[in-house]
Nucleic acid binder design. Structure first.
Length: 212
DNA sequence: ATACAGATCGGT
DNA sequence: CCGATCTGTATA
């Protein structure tokens, strides 16, 4: 599989969020390869998007990475305990990003279990294995992605993405974003994408719950 | 200097 | 549903 180059990220967060489904996120962590297939994303469209940290051009120490060049990691701490990883999209001065919400483990699962639960993979229940990377905070813990990775260039050798296989359209669900109750009209924007057949999706669309 | 809410998670 | 836990951000 091929590493994505800068130009791939140079598009709107909406385009990027959908395009990243099925692709792989890789972290070379202290000589251990940690990798997962992206199965859920959310687009944050910047200055006009009330759910975005960069809404209304809010430019602070925290949001600075999003104003920089595309293809970098925007990692922030939420609720004082969890990190969330985003991929900066668009272009310099256009603060858009894609939140990675869920992965399917591909490589380094044993190390992920250690990082998430502090125990051996062989002692994890099925539920714990599904819980390894099925949420934005969880996957950062499993991939050992922290505030130290904020601003990391995804065109480098430490943290990067590989082109994967895009899922068929029929397997992609497009729906609203999670936990942005404060965002007024933006609550209803269809900015979340996930692979319906993946067991690692964090939250499923309610209106689609019961499909055979 | 102080107040407050949050792109989450895990346990009730 | 609630609490953990702390930083970023806004207000004074």
């Amino acid at each position: 599989m091929q590493k994505l180059d800068r130009n791939f990220y140079k598009c709107s967060a909406l385009e990027l969020a959908k395009a990243l489904l099925g692709y792989h996120l890789v972290h070379i962590d202290d000589n251990t390869v940690l990798a997962g297939k992206i199965v859920e994303t959310e687009a944050y469209m910047g200055i006009d998007d009330k759910a975005a940290h960069s809404y209304n051009n809010r430019r602070t120490r925290r949001t600075e990475t999003m104003f920089g060049p595309p293809g970098h990691a925007y990692v922030y701490l939420i609720y004082g305990m969890y990190y969330c990883m985003n991929i900066v999209a668009a272009d310099i001065g256009i603060p858009q990003a894609v939140l990675i919400r869920a992965l399917e483990p591909v490589e380094g699962m044993d190390r992920m279990a250690e990082l998430r639960y502090g125990k051996d993979l062989s002692r994890c229940s099925k539920k714990e294995i599904l819980g390894l990377t099925n949420g934005p905070g969880k996957l950062c813990r499993a991939m050992n992605i922290t505030g130290a990775d904020n601003g990391e260039d995804l065109c480098g050798n430490r943290l990067f993405l590989l082109k994967g296989t895009a899922p068929p359209e029929s397997d992609i669900v497009i729906t609203t974003r999670v936990n942005i109750d404060y965002a007024e009209e933006a609550i209803n924007y269809p900015y979340r994408f996930y692979i319906n057949s993946s067991p690692y999706v964090s939250v499923r669309d309610k209106s689609l719950q019961d499909k055979a």
